[in-house]
Amino acid sequence: MNSIVCLKEVPDTETRIEVRGGKIVEEGIQYVVNPYDEFALEEALRWQEAHGGKVTLISLGPERARESILKGLAMGADEVYHLSDPAFLGGDAYATAQALAAAIRKLGEYDVIFCGKQAVDDDNAAVGAMLAEMLDLPHVSVVTRLELAADGRSVRAEREIEGGREVVETPLPAVLTAQKGLNEPRYPSFKGIRQARSKPFTTWTPGDVGLDPGTVGAAGARLETIEILPPPERPAGRIVPGEPEEAAREVVRLLREEARVI
């Protein structure tokens, strides 16, 4: 069972995001592996433990992302292909999916592609399904539970929908995007951390995956960011004073008479 896992480096969810001059201020940001990609990788590692095969990481991102990618290797992935050429940067979901699709075509043999359900920076939740379409594979997104059929040729997946779950069956290979709750990602062991730096780490340029540098990254994007703005500030609220009974009565009154939401 050979798995490909797509991994992105993103700002830590605890990081404050500051906007200045229409852009995100990058200084001071702490970067981590996209949390949803850890669920994707964990699932691939569990399949490998149960059924053998190889776990290959693919990551598109700047040179800086190397540390996060090494964490993926330390968790147990076997090898990594890093699309790290500057030409790959500044793209949208479409350009990213296109580059990943080209890299995956070049890798060839695989049984399943795991992605996180979305990256917590751009919040598109689009690359997985786009990638599937470009590779002409089926996809199941936002997967919270996964079972591999006994013959290893199809999966039964549960995906989160409003107020419930859809049970989806699909033949493999397929693209599956992981939601929190699918599993509990492991921490890298000391041995894993030690071994990570000696695992195969290949850097690819657009040319290496058969793409023209003028069609990837920002040049290949279909979506253009005009500007980035800070979110509107909420007006200052107030503490409603008094004994609990009084405060509760006053808040309910305010919700009806002032805020008019009840």
Binding site: P11, T13, R16, I17, V19, I24, V120, D121, D122, D123, R222, L223, E224, T225, I226, E227, I228, L229, P230, P231
Partner: peptide, 12 residues
């Protein structure tokens, strides 16, 4: 974007 820590104005 960033779960609402910032807003992006975009065109296609």
């Amino acid at each position: 974007i960033y779960a609402g820590k910032a807003l992006a104005r975009v065109k296609l």
